[in-house]
Amino acid sequence: MDNIDKKLLTIIQDNFPICSRPYKEIGKKLGISEEEIIRRVSKFKDEGIIRRIGGVFDSRKLKYKSTLCAMEVPEEKLADVVSIVNSYTGVTHNYLRQHDYNLWFTLITSSENKLKETIKEIEEKTGFKVYELPARKLFKIKVNFYVPGLEEGEKDFVK
């Protein structure tokens, strides 16, 4: 990954231009052609570094309800529980973490009722309790990441 790649990844994370020729715009910022940008972006997609390009929506603004859930699942039951939990569209992230509460997932649904129902259903299907950790207060949410290896002074070039 060269320096242009790193800058490209930084820009494309949250400054994807909303215009007719977005890749041409990005190219102007980086001093390379539209074709070259498209070639590099395609490569990142093939390699799996870019998962998708699109909009990240604010669930609260769209009137959806979300929560964080934790479960305590014995290791031998983990695979079964994971496949049940992952089968829900509203489960977007699911991780194994180092604690007695070892399974941590986020759940987003279209209403508070649906949230309760889904949690109850997961408990019934798996036989384990789901601990709910709804956000009482949001201090920060920022879903773009810094690209490792970009020099300190270079991180500001997109502003």
């Binding site: 949250d14 570094i49 870019i50 699109g54 909009g55 990240v56 929506f57």
Partner: peptide, 14 residues
């Protein structure tokens, strides 16, 4: 409604 427009990266791969 759109919090961010752009690429979602697999940060583990970076």
């Amino acid at each position: 409604y759109i919090r961010r427009m752009g690429a979602a990266l697999r940060h583990r791969r970076m």
